[in-house]
Amino acid sequence: MTEYQVIIDGCKNLKGGIIEAFHALQDKYNYIPAEALREAARQFGVSEAEAYGVATFYSYLAVEKRGRYVIRMCESAPCHVAGADELLKEIETALGIKTGETTADGKFTLELAQCVGQCQATPVITINSQPYFNVTKEKLKEILADCK
């Protein structure tokens, strides 16, 4: 079995578990490669179109290649009033990319997110799902430097 098949096989006994399979794939590759998506469709007995429709419905799932570190910036109202827009500009400047892009070295991808449920410490960013709290310009430098 290919690596994709092994990962998908681990979710096969979950009824309707194609989304779980997508999560497992994304945990490994940071996105769902096209070949893996086709394999998932086959194993769960749905058409490729349907599997693609499911994967692209959910903003947490990605079907395009992304960087090793996926940074998501929360832009919902509580983070917005805590200065999310300014912070987003800081991140864009620090990485030299616009929102939605990946750095040339394939290290960082920057995305927007809606509330990630950590509103006790706004503004919030997540990096590969790990939340960072009360992010300031200074903290941001440290956080990015820690991404090796």
Binding site: L14, K15, G16, G17, I18, I19, E20, F22, H23, F44, V46, G53, V54, F57, Y58, S59, Y60, L61, A113, Q114
Partner: peptide, 27 residues
């Protein structure tokens, strides 16, 4: 009890969309 994961769609909080999502469909 089994834990299933959503994937970043606010509408999946609506109970029937949530059910669709557990079934492996668009929410």
């Amino acid at each position: 009890i089994e834990i299933r994961m959503g994937a970043g769609a606010y509408v999946c909080g609506e109970e029937t969309a949530l059910i669709e999502s557990i079934e492996g469909h668009r929410g």
